[in-house]
Design a protein around this nucleic acid. Sequence first.
DNA 1: TGTACATCAGTGAACGCGCGTTCACTGATGTAC
DNA 2: TGTACATCAGTGAACGCGCGTTCACTGATGTAC
Lengths: 211, 211
Amino acid sequence: MKISKAASARHRVALLDAASGLFRERGFQGVSIADIAAAVGLTHGAFYTHFTSKEALCAEVMEQAIGKLETRVRAGTSGRRKRVEAYLSVRHVENRAAGCPVAALSGDIAREQDDIRTAFSGASDRLFEAMAMEEPAETPGARDRAIVSLVIRFGALVLARATTDPKLRDEILNAAKRALMEPGIPIGDTAGKGVFSTTRTAARKQSRHRK
Amino acid sequence: MKISKAASARHRVALLDAASGLFRERGFQGVSIADIAAAVGLTHGAFYTHFTSKEALCAEVMEQAIGKLETRVRAGTSGRRKRVEAYLSVRHVENRAAGCPVAALSGDIAREQDDIRTAFSGASDRLFEAMAMEEPAETPGARDRAIVSLVIRFGALVLARATTDPKLRDEILNAAKRALMEPGIPIGDTAGKGVFSTTRTAARKQSRHRK
DNA sequence: TGTACATCAGTGAACGCGCGTTCACTGATGTAC
DNA sequence: TGTACATCAGTGAACGCGCGTTCACTGATGTAC
């Protein structure tokens, strides 16, 4: 039966939202069209009045998800510290569906078709730029630091999610938080050169930890 | 037809090896039993004389792959610098099949069954311990640094793989390499505090870059 | 060493299942009068 | 405002397909004599 245009438009949005959450939770291949439709209270057939294929939906979901992220970063409502705390929280580790789409789907994306990959890559490139702008623009190497900062957040979240041991999970999250919060933590080749124990920033870090 | 015991044993090893590479390349769900068998020159039926199920194979592959990694880390044949260079090379980004199993499969693993997850988590915990031992044992925070070091390598590789733009890919790899090679790179909350430009390690880093 | 036979690794047809996608059909919506 | 009808969002059966797994069968292997 036909329904009102307004209701149909709501269905389209609901399908995108449901797909966005389900994809992050179970991956592209782990979610069927029927799953997505059922999550919205429709049957699988209705899906094709809104999207031409599953691939097309994937691409649109990725673009929208990263776009939202970019907007939030550019808005910069909460401070950096708060955002790092939220990103590296146990809550975020456990709540894939509402969490970072890059962390949840980057593993899948490398294997998807070109149009999805391009959508993801283009969007994440814009996201990187937005994050790079967070750092003081005039300092050299701002983009490098933004990238490493992103890499740490991202890597820690994904690794923490791959773990079943809560102790190990917390170790990963806390180590990453410390690295992000305290400037100048030595993670370089300190072992070979024996530089570490004489580094000022290192000593500073240690004294903070004891507190 | 029956074949010799030696040949059968070779088939088992070959199946494990083929599965290990194919899983890393396409993920658990992206590889069928028939694919694995065909890669070794067998038909899908033969698979079940060696393994009870696909799940059992997955668990065994993960355990073996991470075990090999752990052995190599403990052996410590090449230096840290060399290993970082290799890990964050374009070659490694492009060659998933022969690359790091944790980076290739951690995204999938979070969604797999408990026995696979446990196998992965247990093995990666041991791997972390092995990497933590690389750092000078007597310095405090060695494990933290090992974890952050691993998180950076891992995160950069996975992000680089998700990218289609070669320029962006190289930026990620190089930024991570610099963070790993040069101790005391400030990635912390420098923007808010304005600490960065007055940090000694920061100045040191900048002067190195200009060279 | 040669022969007879039980074993069992590998084959390929067959199974049930869930998937993405299509399509004839339904009936409320929205429009023309 | 009320009526008649075309539209089209959603339904659910059906499609072909590939999957993991099973199993009767094959024939070289390996062993007992």
